[in-house]
Amino acid sequence: MITLTINDKTIHTQVGRSILEVARDNAIWIPTLCYHEALKPYGGCRLCLVELETPRGSRVVSSCTFPAEDGMVVHTNTKTIQQSRQIVAQLLLARAGHVPFIRELAASVGVNDTPYTLPQDTCVLCARCVRACQEIVGMSAISIANRGSDRVVVPPFKISSADCIECTTCVLVCPTDAITLDDITDSSRTVHEWQSEYARGACRLCEYTLNGN
């Protein structure tokens, strides 16, 4: 067992858990976007940042990736944290302000509009889909291409991937509905984001087909 404090609340917990997990168990709210219980922590969205008090001064870390340690002093809502969350939320609004989920997320940290302008897209690059495909399904039918603000989620060479087993896990974990399965009753389905058509078949994991037979 270890003992730490989060926002001055003393918490006992076992080793090997992240600060985020410990906080959530204790009903301490920390906003997240790229985090998903079923996936390895990624540390990409930076919404879950918290501030640690250390002998060498304060330190800002992502709570989803940082292990809770004995004697740790954590603050989840300092001025620095609030400001950085708000700026991240403003950047998200600039990218995907048309997505209800993003607007709600931004509102939860007190942000309702943005001073910034970015090319709009429903995909916010949280990489949940890519990670799910790799970590849960074990296929890597999609991945991230390009770097920086040119990043995109695509199947290899932007064409239908033979590795896709049509399990739709990516659709399930996508927080912004950037990946949608259209026309489910048709004999082919279109993943709009990737402009590619898949002949509908059974999921090779569970053999479930989308129209139920």
């Binding site: 969205c45 700026i87 991240v88 950047l91 690059l125």
Partner: peptide
Amino acid sequence: GQCIPCRWGTKV
């Protein structure tokens, strides 16, 4: 481009 502040913050 993995994290938001660097990916979009530096762009803005």
